[in-house]
Design a protein around this nucleic acid. Sequence first.
DNA 1: ATCTGTCCCTGGACGC
DNA 2: TGCGTCCAGGGACAGA
Length: 291
Amino acid sequence: MPELPEVEVTRRALEPLLVGRRIRRVTTTARSYFFLTPPSTLRTRLEGRTVVGLIRRGKYLLAELDDASHLLLHLGMTGQLFSSAAASPRLVSAKSRVSLRPATQRQFQPDAHTHLVIAFSDRGPKLFFRDVRKFGKVRWLAPGREDPRCEKLGVDALEVRGDDLVAACKKRTAPIKSVLLDQSVLAGVGNIYADEALFRARIRPTRRARALKRAEYDALARAVIAVLEAGIAAGGSSIDDFVRPDGSDGGYQGEHRVYGRSGEPCPRCGSEIRRVVIGQRSTCFCPSCQQ
DNA sequence: ATCTGTCCCTGGACGC
DNA sequence: TGCGTCCAGGGACAGA
């Protein structure tokens, strides 16, 4: 699940791959809600443009083009952004994986889930955007236009301070976990890093957001930053689909302390990690050290 | 203003 | 082996 660390790892790897290159041809799958901008419009707006920058806002990537327009990308749940040079079993469904010989797995072949392919004038590596569940998004933004989704984003999670949480949680009776996932409060946190941050700060995810003590908001803000930075340093979490743009796996999935570990002993106290559902999201925590 | 439930989608896990 | 069912989840949206 791409969250801030995965998106930032992607951004850092793609920036040198994209910046300065001129888009020659754009190919897409059929029109669907994956395309906030219709494929035909995407093609005409992008072809001929040169990429001049790549920035991240929360979980969004924004490629700036030489005419001051932007290409907005969101990886959703299963999105994969990578270059021609990438190869990984994660870029192929398990079914076709078994039917493929190892030799043919080395070269990525665009499939029905490869919704966007960008080829460049220099005939070098292409950019692929593959997304099995199509929860990802692609949108072209005219010069000066902002995306309403981006405008609503709260403070970037890498820069959150206790004060931000105090202000955001003042009137909120929802569980603190739900507030961490609210992109208008904290931009970039998703299910994995929310659970990890709450574990690190020793706060039970079911607590009402407004009921935390001042010191707990501070601890939580520090914990959010710490887990996100650790995630970036490790190259992100490759659980189901995430791959880095070169096809390699991230390394953070092995460092999860509670996420996906229900039934296992807590790495801190040995109690059994429990799983509950909060806001339709599965949530793992240690009932003993998160009170 | 805030909260909760539903929906989009597909592949993998699991039970029979 | 094969089929049916359930589940995962980011975020928009509707209704309470």
